[in-house]
Every structure is written in structure tokens, then in C-alpha cells.
Design a protein around this nucleic acid. Structure first.
Lengths: 241, 241
DNA sequence: TTCGCACGCGATGCATACAATGTTTGGGGC
DNA sequence: GCCCCAAACATTGTATGCATCGCGTGCGAA
């Protein structure tokens, strides 16, 4: 064996790339190579380090991460299943690219799914969650005031994730998260438009108010409006670059 | 097929064109083992031949299908990604089991997704599709009259699939199909309740009428009501067995 | 020039061997 | 008899070599 077990792994970012939530899974140690690779490559795709169309060569990746091709193949297969890559027999995998039409479709579905989450949340949110949501929302307001773009981006993610969870429908959460991961690279860009933070927070506010007063219809409507706005902001950014 | 003259190279950098593997493209020659296995095992799960909780032993499956463990592993990984199996590190895969709560959640999401499809369809259906839908619906009516359970089951599948397609949102179609595959084993059982065929067709009729008159709200509502009814029928069957 | 085809190279699919982990089981102590 | 621990066993994870496929390349014919 030429290579030591503890290999130098390249720059571990925040790993928000959990592909399968796996309900009560508690395995702190003994993570397999294929899983680690899946998370790392997924993060790189989501962070924009691996651009759409980039070929994901098994051999190259195997060398880069110091493992054999086998775990790489399994990771790539998972990424393809999650929609982050496209895999074709005997032709390898590439980072998934999306056409304008498809992006539009994904945003539409995303808006409806998040609308559903918000609607469910309006009906199922618990008292404890109401407090947490209020707090989360107030914290975000502070970030807007300070113009903390990085902080607000994270708070925004947390906000949406929280509302998924408040729907109290685990399957819906998984479905929404799955779609969201695929739209994430495009969603992120919205905040580059100046003043978008404040608008985003205002829209969040309408969603929060609707949920807190248990108004399902309004929660759904406001969340969909918000997502529509996010899409619009992305388009503006997209055209102007 | 003309190619522009004077250009030095066509530059076949497949960036966005061939993302989706073109659904109907079946090539009997050159299908990989892992894909064949994935399809066969998936069918067995969906047909109820492999019951939830059944362990999917790599070695056993490899021997049964006369291949090595490698393609079996890849097939199992795909099945896990599709939600048909559950995979846990160092512990193997088992056919996915669903609790009552989870099934409820899946039916809820399914109902909302199909409602969305119907709503989109009401807005986007083409004249040609209107004719086809009408024909499909009339054919099903005949099957109900004859009490052809097998035939109606297929027509029912075709009906729902058709409405997905009529939404003209490919991403929504994929999302809905993905969820549907996971609920399929339970959906199928509904027609064992006597008289369910006629009721199902009546509900379809309301959906069809709403779509044909372009009433998005009604189409969504009626489709959700239909799915709710399907779920109820399954519960009745489920309790009585 | 342009098209067609055969050949060769590189990458992926698969098989097999080895390593690591989870589970089971059997023996000893309480 | 019951519990605990450890070692053997069974099963999965990983590495490596060979087989197979796709695609580019270059030669030859129309």
C-alpha cells in the first residue's frame, strides 16, 4: 500500500449537501469514501466551483482525491441521481447544465413546492416554532440593516429551510430540498442586485405574518410571490452580466 | 442535415442540448448490466414481488443474475436514490418500507403535485392534446362499462401520465413521476374495492371538464379531490385485508 | 473537397482480490 | 441463568486489472 489512510483532503466547506436526510442516522465516524466524495463534489457544484458542462472524469477525480475509481463511480452515480450531474453509459458524467426553459420550469415548481410548505406550515406550526421563526426573522432584519450580505444569504437559507420543517411533512421537506439543491446555484445570485436584501426581507415578512396567523391561503400565495420575485431578481442579474 | 460551411469545426461541446437522456430512447443493444439490474429489481419492488424490508444482498443478487457484485452495487445505489430502497453504510440495502405516517405524507404531496399538473394542464393544453384526452377518457368509460379491471388500471395510469405531460413542464413531470413511482404499490390496490372503477371515472370526468374549459383552479381542486379519494379507497382496502 | 470506414486510443463497465466494518456467537465471570 | 466481552464470521467498502465501448484520426475513394 503506497498511500497512507489519512489523506489530505482539499478544503472542506460547509457541507449542506446532504442528499438523503436519513432520519435517525447517527454515525459520527467511519464515513465511507464514496459518501465523502459525493458531499465534496456536490458542494463544489453548488458553490459554482464546478461549472455546468464540466466533465467529471473518473480517473482524474480518483487521482485528485487519492482513492480508486470505485468510490468515485459511486459518488458520481449518486450525484446523477440527485440531478446535479448527468451520466450516460460509456460516456462518463458531466456537471448538469440547464437551459433557460428548464430553469424557468424549475423555478415554477420550486415556487409551488415552497408555497405548499408555507401553506402546511400555516396549519401545522407549533408554538415553539412560532417563537423560533419570529426570532429568526428578527435576526435577519438586523442583517439587512447592517447590509451583511454573506450573513443574510445564510439567514435566507435558514429561513426557507425552517419553513420546510414547519410544514411537518417530512416527505415534502425531502422533495423541496431535492429541488432546491438543483436550483441553488441560480438562487444564490439574486442578492447581487443592490437593495434586494430589503425587498427579500419584506417578502419574508408577509410570509411570516400569514403563517403566524394561520392563514394557509395567504402563506401559500405570499411564498409563491416571493419565489417569483427571486426568479425575477435572478433574471435581472443574469441579463446584466 | 446541413452543416455551416467555412467553420473550422462543429465544436461538439455538448453543453446544454443532451442533458436529459431522452425518455423514450431504448437501445436493446449495449445496455449495461447495472441498468438492466436496476430496472428488473425496481419492477419487482413495484410489482410487490419484493416486499418492504426484504434485504437486498449484494452477493445473492450477483449470483442470481450471473454478474459480479459491482453492477449490483450500482443498481442498488440507484434504487436507494430513487427511494425504492434504503442503503446504510456497511449494513447493506433493504427494500424501502413506509410507515403509515409517511404514506400519508406521500399521498398528500402526490395530491398536491398532481393538482399542480392538472392546473398547468388547464392553461397549457394544446388542441391536439384536448382531442387525445377526450378520446382517452372515452375509452376508459368503455372499460368501466365492461368491468375490465386490468384494462382500466392501465387506462388510469395513462390518464394521469397524460395530464402530467399536458402540463408542459418537463421538470414537473419528472418530479411527479418520481413521487408516483414510490406511491405506486399502494395506489394500485385501490381498484380492489368494488365499484371503485365507476367512481374513479366520475372523478376523472370532473378533472377533464375543468381542464377542457381552461379552469385552472377547478382542475387543481378536482385532481386533489380525486387523489384524496384514491387514498381513502386504499385505506378502506388496507383495513379490510 | 467531402464522405466513409477502419483502426487506435482513452475512458468507462465489469470482475476479482483484499481490507474494513457490523453482527453473531461462544465462553467465562458474576 | 444472565450478562459481558472478544473473536470468528459474514457482508460491505475499496483497489486493481482486464474487457468493452465511444470517439477521434487518418487514409482512401467518389
Amino acid at each position: 500500500m503506497l498511500r497512507p489512510r489519512g489523506l489530505p483532503k482539499p478544503v472542506r466547506r460547509k457541507s449542506a449537501a446532504d442528499i438523503e436526510p436519513a432520519v435517525g442516522e447517527t454515525r459520527p465516524n467511519g464515513v465511507t469514501h464514496s459518501e465523502r466524495l459525493r458531499i465534496e463534489i456536490a458542494d463544489q457544484i453548488l458553490n459554482g466551483e464546478l461549472l455546468p458542462g464540466t466533465p467529471l472524469d473518473e480517473t482524474t477525480l480518483a487521482e485528485r482525491y487519492g482513492v480508486s475509481r470505485t468510490p468515485v463511480r459511486e459518488a458520481l452515480r449518486d450525484l446523477a441521481a440527485a440531478g446535479l450531474a448527468v451520466h450516460r453509459p460509456h460516456r462518463g458524467a458531466v456537471v448538469a447544465a440547464v437551459t433557460d426553459v428548464r430553469l424557468q420550469e424549475m423555478f415554477d415548481v420550486m415556487a409551488d413546492l415552497e408555497g405548499l410548505c408555507a401553506g402546511y406550515a400555516a396549519e401545522n406550526i407549533t408554538p415553539a416554532e412560532r417563537q423560533d421563526l419570529t426570532l429568526l426573522h428578527a435576526t435577519a432584519k438586523e442583517l439587512v440593516r447592517k447590509g451583511d450580505l454573506e450573513g443574510y444569504t445564510q439567514a435566507n437559507d435558514a429561513f426557507h429551510t425552517f419553513i420546510y420543517a414547519a410544514s411537518h411533512n417530512a416527505f415534502l421537506v425531502e422533495t423541496a430540498m431535492s429541488v432546491r439543491r438543483r436550483v441553488a446555484p441560480f438562487r444564490r445570485a439574486q442578492f447581487r442586485t443592490l437593495g434586494r436584501l430589503a425587498i427579500s426581507h419584506q417578502e419574508h415578512d408577509r410570509v411570516v405574518q400569514a403563517i403566524l396567523r394561520g392563514d394557509r391561503e395567504a402563506a401559500t400565495r405570499e411564498m409563491r410571490a416571493h419565489l417569483s420575485s427571486v426568479h425575477h431578481a435572478f433574471q435581472i442579474f443574469s441579463e446584466g452580466r
